[in-house]
């Protein structure tokens, strides 16, 4: 009933990516997801969309990024597909390894995994699926004054 769904394709442009990011966040806000859930989703979306635009499509304006968004009362599920050559996520070095601490790279995927319930790469690394289960409320916000 209150599900929020949309699909969109856009050229490799980080400004367009920001707009899509805001649209997804608006979907979550409309179903009153917590600030913490939204914080995690915004970070994960930023990393995933920038990866698709920059590393996947190589900023090629002739290539597009394809996003599908499904947000309901229990979870947000976002699929992001680029038109690049793909990659093997297992090849990305561990950024927390002592030898890699000062090197760039690998932190985006790591942050996505930390803040999402599930992060799945498929189609040779061209597609990433982000799933965030709604945080369980610890306070009973439905309590009514006497």
């Amino acid at each position: 009933m209150s599900d929020q769904n949309f699909e969109i394709s856009f050229p490799s442009d980080t400004v367009k990516g920001q707009e899509v990011q805001e649209r997804i966040i608006t979907c979550m806000e409309s179903i009153s997801y917590s600030d913490r859930d939204i914080f995690g989703m915004r970070l994960a979306l930023e990393e995933a969309l920038v990866n698709a635009i920059k590393h996947g499509n190589g900023m090629d304006p002739n290539k597009e990024v394809h996003v599908s968004c499904h947000v309901d009362e229990t979870a947000a599920r976002i699929t992001i597909r680029d038109e690049g050559e793909g990659f093997d996520p297992d090849d990305v070095p561990d950024p927390t390894d002592e030898d890699n601490l000062e090197k760039p790279g690998g932190r985006g995927i790591m942050l996505m995994k930390a803040f999402m319930t599930e992060v799945t790469y498929c189609e040779g690394g061209n597609t990433v699926i982000l799933v965030k289960h709604r945080e369980v409320e610890t306070e009973d916000s439905s309590a009514v004054a006497e």
Partner: peptide, 16 residues
């Protein structure tokens, strides 16, 4: 309120 991995990379450059 928000910080991405790209920003962390810039901070690393600054640190170096």
């Amino acid at each position: 309120e928000y910080l991405s991995s790209a920003a962390l990379s810039k901070l690393l450059i600054l640190e170096k």
